[in-house]
Simulated assay, not measured.
Amino acid sequence: MPHTPPTTVEPAQVREFREADPQVRLIDVRTPGEFTATHIPGSYNVPLDLLREHRAELTAQHGDPVVLVCASGARAEQARALLETAGLDRISVLRGGITGWEGEGGDLDRGRGTWAMERQVRLVAGLLVLTGVVASTAYEPLKWISGFVGAGLTFAALSNTCAMSRALGLLPHNRTAATDGRALLDALTGGRDGSRTAG
């Protein structure tokens, strides 16, 4: 991998990078539940919320190239911006995330976990809109539930953030058993023995 890697890389490039440089770190920033369900072999789980929580501690003790991974690339881009602000460099984002990786024939380890966050958001948003429409037949002002959800989704698209996904990420089904945040961060910032939350 060159000294200054591109900010986004294609799945095929990631495979080439890993073959050429075994020090390349794949850091998956999805929730532990999503990571347990499916992840790229050899990747480490360092959730985006954990990075936000410990942003003041984010100093790397290595010069290894890092490729950030999420479901589609949006959360990985947020993580890249956060890490660059913290002074970490040699960071790229896997274009298309896990979806793009799988679409190009990349291997995945699968386990028992939760739905992808985007799918969870679609379910909750859809249920809220449906509830608002149905409930408004009995009490007309409840139609604004649907309007509120629509406004929230519009803002999420324009700002490339999602408050609903952050809230859903705090639910127990999106978390694994208690994990040591420092050990997870070491997968990104520390030596070569950083811990995976799944094999």
Score class of each variant (00 low, 15 high):
P5C: 01
T7Q: 14
T8N: 10
V9N: 04
V14L: 15
E16W: 12
E16M: 15
F17I: 08
E19D: 13
P22I: 10
Q23Y: 07
T31Q: 01
P32V: 05
E34R: 02
P41M: 02
H54I: 00
R55T: 12
E57H: 06
E57K: 06
L58T: 00
Q61E: 15
Q61I: 09
H62Y: 01
P65L: 07
V67Q: 10
V69T: 08
C70L: 10
R75W: 06
A76H: 02
L83Y: 07
L83H: 02
T85K: 13
A86T: 03
L88G: 06
D89T: 12
I91Q: 05
S92F: 09
L94P: 05
G96C: 06
G97M: 08
W101P: 02
E104K: 12
L108I: 09
R110N: 03
T114L: 03
V121W: 00
L128E: 04
V129I: 14
T137S: 10
A138F: 12
P141E: 09
L142G: 04
W144D: 06
I145T: 14
I145R: 07
V149C: 01
G152W: 04
A157E: 05
C162H: 01
A163I: 01
A163C: 00
L171K: 01
N174S: 02
T176D: 15
A177E: 15
A177Q: 13
D180M: 04
L184W: 05
L185C: 07
T189Y: 03
D193W: 14
D193H: 12
R196Q: 12
A198S: 11
